[in-house]
Design a protein around this nucleic acid. Structure first.
Lengths: 329, 329
DNA sequence: TTGTACGCGTTATCAG
DNA sequence: CTGATAACGCGTACAA
C-alpha cells in the first residue's frame, strides 16, 4: 500500500504539494507537477478515500435535498400533526441523521427554489419520482436519486427491492395453499410498480399459477370500479401496489360488508404509518425508508470524495410485515 | 457531530475505555460500562466508520474469495495464456487492486478448500452463481456475492444491470428502424439472463413490437438447432443472452454463409475479450467486471466495519459497445 | 481495570 | 510557489 508520503519522497517534494497536484488546487509549477505525476504513476498511487474524508471532514460538506412541489405540500401538511408519518419524512430523517454524523450541512428545497437560489453545493440528493427540470440534471456535481430510477439514464439511485419482497411474499402465500391471488397495480410506467408486478408475476408462474392483474388509477373511483369487477371472482388474496391503494381497497371492502381477512385477504406495500392505524391493521411489505435516506447520503459522500464513481442502482431489501389483513399461519 | 472525546468526557473516562466498551474488547468493570453506555445514549453517539477504518487499517484485514471448482478450472486454464481473458479473472483483478489499496490480505479458494481449511477471516467474497454449500452461507461473518443474486435471500450482492443495458440497446436499435429483433437466451432461472430478457421484452412492448424469444442450452448443438428454425423468419437483429452464445451463433452464421451484419446483425452481452477477437468483432453490452470486483471489496469492508448493514443489491450500469456485427448509424 | 499517546493518510493553514 | 505541521475520529500498544 503506497501512501502520499511515499509519493512525496520519490518526487522530492512535500506531501502538501502532492496533495495540491492531485486535487488540482492552489498553485504549483509545471515542473513539480510533472515530477509528482511521474511518481504517482510509478508507484501506482491511489489516495485513500477514507483518509481523504477524514481530512476534508473539518470543513464539512454542503449538500441539498431537492423535491417537487407535490412532495413539499405533502411534507408541510404533516408539520401540524404529532407524528411525521409520510414515506418521505422518514427518508428525510434518515438523511438528516446521516448528515449530522458526517458534519454535512443540508438544505431542503423544491426544484424551483433551487433553480432560483443558485448557491454552490458539494452534492445533491433528489427525492421521489416526480419530473425533474433538465437544468438541475445538467449541473455538474454529484447527484443521488432516492426512490427514483429512470431506465436508460445512468444515475446513482437508491430504491427498494420491490421485486424480491413481492416474490418472496407471494410465494409464501402460495405455499400456505392459496391459489387465487390477484394483483391490483398502478401505472407500470413507474419502475417501482413494475418491479412489484414482475415479482408477483414470476412467483405465480414459478408455482404454475396464472397471474391475474388489474391496472387502476390511484383514486377511489377507479379502485371501486375495479373491485366491483373483481369480487365476484372470489379472490383469496389481493395484493396491491402500495399501502395507499390497499387502504382504499380496504375501505371498499368495509363499505360492502366483506370481512377481512375471513372472506378476502389483503396485502399492501411500503408500510406507511397508516398501515398500522386502519382496522384491521394492514399486512404489508415494508420499505426501509430510513435506511434509504441514510444509504443515499453515504453514497453521495462517496461520490463527493471521488470514490466508486461508476454509477449503480442500490436496491434495499424489503420485509413482509404480517398484521391482521392476512390469516397468518 | 459528537465524537468519542465527548463521550469520554461526559462519562468521566478515557477514550480508550469508551472504545473498549463500544467494541466489547479488553476488560472493563460493569460500572464503567454503564457510565459509558449512558453517555453514548445521551449524546446519541455513532462512531465514524471512516475514522474507524483508518484506525483499524494498521492491522489490515483478512478476507477470502470463494468460487466453485468450475470457475477454478476456468481460471487455471488461462494461466498459461498471455492474456487473462475471462470474465472472472477481470473481476478478480478488481478485487485484488482494491485489496492492495486497503491493506487487505486476500486468499482465493474453492468452496471445498475453504471448508477444509477452517481459517478465520474477517469477511468473504463469493464469485459466480454456482451452487454454494450451505455451511458456508451459515458461517457468521460478512459475505458479499458477486454476479450472483438469489431471489428471496437477503444477501449483499453486486451484479450488472442487465435490464437497463438491454432496454437501452434494444430501444436504440428500434429507433434505427429495425423491427424484427429476436432474443436467444439461456435459462431464465438465472437472474442475470432473466433481467436481460425483461429488458428486451419491455423495450419491444414499449415500442409496440412483439417480443420473439427462444430458449437454448448453452451448447452448439442446441444453438444450431434453434438457429435453423429462426433464420427462415428473416430476423434483422439477434440479441443473445451473452457473448459466449453470440459467438456460437456467429459461427453458425459463418458456416452457413450468412453475412454479418449485412444479412443479419448480432448483439452479445458481457464484452469478454473474445468479443474483440472474433471476425467480425462482436457488438455487445459491456459489463464493468473490474468495477464489479472493486465495488464488492469496498462493500465487504463496509460490512466488516459495521457500516450500512441493511442488505442490498448493487447493480452496476452497463454500456453498449458497437463493433462490426451491427450496422452503426 | 484504566489512561496516555501515537498512528492511520489526507487536506488546510500558515509561514516562508 | 512550496514546506512544515496541525488537525480529522478512532483503535490499541504500553504504561500505570
Amino acid at each position: 500500500m503506497t501512501s502520499i508520503d511515499d509519493v512525496a519522497k520519490l518526487a522530492g517534494v512535500s506531501t502538501a504539494t502532492v496533495s495540491r497536484v492531485i486535487n488540482n488546487k492552489g498553485k504549483y509549477s509545471e515542473k513539480t507537477k510533472l515530477k509528482v505525476l511521474k511518481a504517482v504513476e510509478e508507484l501506482n498511487y491511489k489516495p485513500s478515500t477514507q483518509a481523504r474524508h477524514l481530512a476534508k471532514f473539518r470543513k464539512g460538506f454542503n449538500i441539498c435535498v431537492l423535491y417537487s412541489e407535490r412532495i413539499k405540500k405533502h411534507l408541510i401538511s404533516e408539520k401540524n400533526e404529532f407524528i411525521q408519518k409520510s414515506f418521505y419524512s422518514i427518508v428525510l430523517k434518515g438523511i438528516a441523521d446521516g448528515a449530522q454524523e458526517n458534519k454535512v450541512k443540508m438544505d431542503t428545497l423544491t426544484f424551483n427554489e433551487f433553480i432560483k437560489k443558485n448557491t454552490k453545493y458539494d452534492g445533491i440528493l433528489i427525492l421521489g419520482s416526480d419530473k425533474i427540470p433538465n437544468n438541475i440534471l445538467e449541473c455538474n456535481i454529484p447527484i443521488v436519486f432516492i426512490d427514483n430510477y429512470i431506465v436508460g439514464k445512468k444515475t446513482n439511485s437508491i430504491v427498494s427491492n420491490g421485486f424480491d419482497g413481492t416474490y418472496y411474499t407471494i410465494d409464501k402465500m402460495i405455499k400456505r395453499g392459496y391459489k387465487k391471488i390477484f394483483h391490483i397495480h398502478g401505472s407500470l410506467m413507474f419502475y417501482g410498480f413494475r418491479r412489484r408486478f414482475e415479482g408477483y408475476e414470476l412467483a405465480m408462474k414459478n408455482n404454475n399459477l396464472f397471474p391475474i392483474t388489474y391496472e387502476i388509477k390511484e383514486e377511489e373511483e377507479s379502485i371501486n370500479y375495479v373491485m366491483s369487477m373483481i369480487m365476484p371472482k372470489k379472490p383469496e388474496i389481493i395484493f396491491a401496489s402500495n399501502d395507499s391503494i390497499a387502504i382504499m381497497i380496504l375501505k371498499y371492502l368495509k363499505n360492502n360488508n366483506i370481512k377481512v381477512p375471513d372472506e378476502v385477504q389483503l396485502i399492501g406495500f411500503d408500510d406507511v404509518i397508516d398501515a398500522t392505524l386502519v382496522n384491521p391493521p394492514l399486512s404489508t411489505i415494508k420499505v426501509f425508508k430510513y435506511e434509504m435516506g441514510n444509504v443515499a447520503l453515504e453514497r453521495l459522500i462517496e461520490l463527493i470524495n471521488g470514490k466508486n464513481l461508476h454509477p449503480y442502482v442500490t436496491s434495499l431489501f424489503t420485509e413482509f410485515i404480517e398484521r391482521k389483513t392476512t390469516k397468518g399461519v
